[in-house]
Write a protein that binds this DNA or RNA. Structure first.
Lengths: 124, 124
DNA sequence: TTGACATATTCCCATATAGGAATATACAAT
DNA sequence: ATTGTATATTCCTATATGGGAATATGTCAA
């Protein structure tokens, strides 16, 4: 069984770094294929192929302007990524709070032997 | 040229939905392989293989407890995803603000012909 | 020690791809 | 109509994989 197609969903589309770079570039504004290629030091077919993927998952929109095709970021399509990773955000804060409290107790000299550093699992 | 390995980075590791599901499950607490497999209706080797990938990119930690291997989420490793997608967040707010203003002007009847709905690029 | 339990790993397979090279297609200028 | 510009697409290739099936490896209990 093959990996899911790059056009399955946004997660698969952005796994490839060149495509992430294209999206970052497009935050500054819409661009033509050759402009994207030049900016990222890609060959034209490379750029075109990546843009096709991005377009299929609706991460970019494209319109024809004469001979040029102008690509535009569709940033809302990245929200599923943000939403998905958001569920882990609370965990980061929790850990940070615990560490913060621990560091403060160190400074105030209130540390007792019963208080320990946040526990780490043993890595194998 | 093949796609980047699933263990290249976190982006590639989470492209696979089963692996995302595993991470979500582990937000509730550490689990053994069989517990993960049962919870997600996976075969044991399936679970084990996915966990191996997650471990290699440091999204999970594992420790041996007798015959069991207990896997634990390492949520900080997801920060690069959060950080990466964060650069697009400002764009969402901007668009939302514009839409909000537009909707309000509709309600107050202040819309003039010079004011238009947020422009959409033409999709091909 | 042996058998049971837990899990990692190997072998196999069909599939999809990123880039290279080449080509096809579409639009613009002369 | 011809030539130039812009870009999509095709052909090719070596590679990696997710799941299935089977097996190897490690720990525990009787």
């Amino acid at each position: 069984m093959a990996r899911l197609s790059t056009t399955t969903d946004v997660f698969n589309a952005i796994a490839e770094p060149q495509r992430r770079a294209i999206l970052e570039l497009l935050t500054e504004g819409e661009l033509s294929v050759n402009e994207i290629a030049a900016s990222l030091d890609l060959n034209q077919p490379q750029a075109s192929k990546h843009l096709r993927v991005l377009h299929e998952v609706e991460l970019v929109e494209v319109r024809q302007e004469g001979r040029q095709r102008i690509y535009q970021l569709q940033s809302e399509s990245l929200k599923p990524i943000h939403d998905w990773v958001g569920q882990f955000e609370a965990l980061w804060n929790t850990r940070f709070d615990q560490l913060d409290a621990y560091l403060q107790s160190l400074q105030t000299g209130e540390t007792t032997h019963e208080q320990r550093k946040p526990a780490d699992g043993t890595s194998i």
